[in-house]
C-alpha cells in the first residue's frame, strides 16, 4: 500500500556527542488522525530509538509534550501533521529554556518559581477551614476558575520574550497561579503574594506582549492575570501613598 509521507526535521542535541544542536530528518507516514507526537513515537519505535522527548496522556491535559512546531509553541498531541502538509515540519524544543537533550527542556527553574508564589490556600488564623465546606457561589468560583486551568505545559514561557531576555522573570504561568489563589474567596494570602510579586522579577517585568495568552492551550489568559495584578498593585501603592495611615 502506498502511503503519503511527510518529513520531520527534528532538533537533536546529545550533550555527550555534540556541542551544538543539529537537525535530523525523518520521513513518517502522513495520516489524517496523526499528530506530531504520533510521528515522534513512530520515529522512536521504528526509525531511531535514540530520540528523546517527554509525553504521557496524549489528550492535552498532562502538559508534557510542548514543543516548537514550525516556530510556534504547541502541545504536539493536539497538532495534526496534516496541517503542515506537504511539509517539511520543523520540531524543536520549547524556546527560552536550556535544552537537556533533543526535545527535552530543563524546567527546574519553573518548579522553583511555582513554589515561590505560594500556590496554596493561606488563612490568616492558620486554621484549615470551617467544619463543613467553605461557601463559594458559582459566581465566586467563576472569578478564579479560568486561572486554575493551567496544565504547566510551559508554552507561555517559551512564547514570552521577557522570560527569554530576563530568565529571572517569575513568568506567566506562575503569576497566573498566584492570581488564581488571590481571587479565590477561601484565600487570605493576597498581601503575602503581592510582596513577592511586586519585586523586580515580578509583575512589573511584564511588558504585555500578550503572546502567552495567545499560545495557551487552555485559555488561561496569563497576560490578563498579570495586568490585573498590576492594576491591583498600582491601586495599593496609591492608597498607601495618599493615605499612609490606612493599613492595607
Amino acid at each position: 500500500m502506498s502511503q503519503e509521507k511527510i518529513t520531520l526535521e527534528v532538533f537533536r542535541f546529545r550533550p555527550e556527542q555534540e556541542d551544538n544542536p543539529v537537525f535530523q530528518s525523518y520521513e513518517v507516514p502522513l495520516r489524517k488522525d496523526w499528530v506530531v507526537l504520533d510521528a515522534l513515537n513512530y520515529i522512536k519505535d521504528y526509525l531511531d530509538g535514540t530520540l528523546s522527548y517527554r509525553w504521557s496522556c496524549r489528550m492535552g491535559v498532562c502538559g508534557s509534550c510542548g514543543m516548537m512546531v514550525n516556530g510556534t509553541p504547541v502541545l504536539t498531541c493536539a497538532t495534526f501533521l496534516q496541517k503542515f502538509a506537504p511539509g517539511p515540519i520543523r520540531v524543536e524544543p520549547l524556546s527560552n529554556f536550556p535544552v537537556v537533550r533533543d526535545l527535552v527542556i530543563e524546567m527546574t527553574d519553573f518548579m522553583e518559581k511555582l513554589k515561590k508564589v505560594k500556590p496554596w490556600i493561606i488563612r490568616k488564623d492558620n486554621q484549615e477551614g470551617p467544619e463543613g465546606e467553605f461557601i463559594q457561589t458559582p459566581s465566586q468560583l467563576a472569578d478564579y476558575k479560568q486561572y486554575s486551568m493551567c496544565i504547566n505545559c510551559m508554552l507561555c514561557y517559551s512564547a514570552c520574550p521577557v522570560y527569554g531576555l530576563e530568565p529571572g522573570f517569575t513568568g506567566p504561568a506562575a503569576i497566573a497561579l498566584a492570581q488564581r489563589y488571590n481571587m479565590d474567596n477561601r484565600d487570605e494570602g493576597q498581601e503575602q503574594r503581592m510582596e513577592l510579586l511586586s519585586t523586580d522579577d515580578g509583575i512589573w517585568q511584564c511588558t504585555f506582549v500578550g503572546e502567552c495568552s495567545e499560545v495557551c492551550p487552555k485559555n488561561v489568559d496569563p497576560a490578563g492575570a498579570i495586568q490585573r495584578y498590576k492594576v491591583a498593585g498600582a491601586t495599593d501603592w496609591w492608597k498607601s501613598f495618599l493615605m499612609p495611615w490606612a493599613k492595607p
Binding site: 550533550p15 516556530g71 529554556f97 536550556p98 535544552v99 520574550p161 527569554g164 506582549v209 500578550g210 495567545e214
Partner: peptide, 24 residues
C-alpha cells in the same frame, strides 16, 4: 553537571514572528 544547550536570543528576535513585530 551534564552540559546543557542554552539558546541565545539575538537582538532581532522579534523579526521571527508577525505578532512580535506588531508588539515591537
Amino acid at each position: 553537571d551534564s552540559k546543557k544547550y542554552k539558546p541565545q536570543m539575538g537582538i532581532f528576535w522579534w523579526t521571527d514572528r508577525w505578532s512580535s513585530i506588531k508588539f515591537i
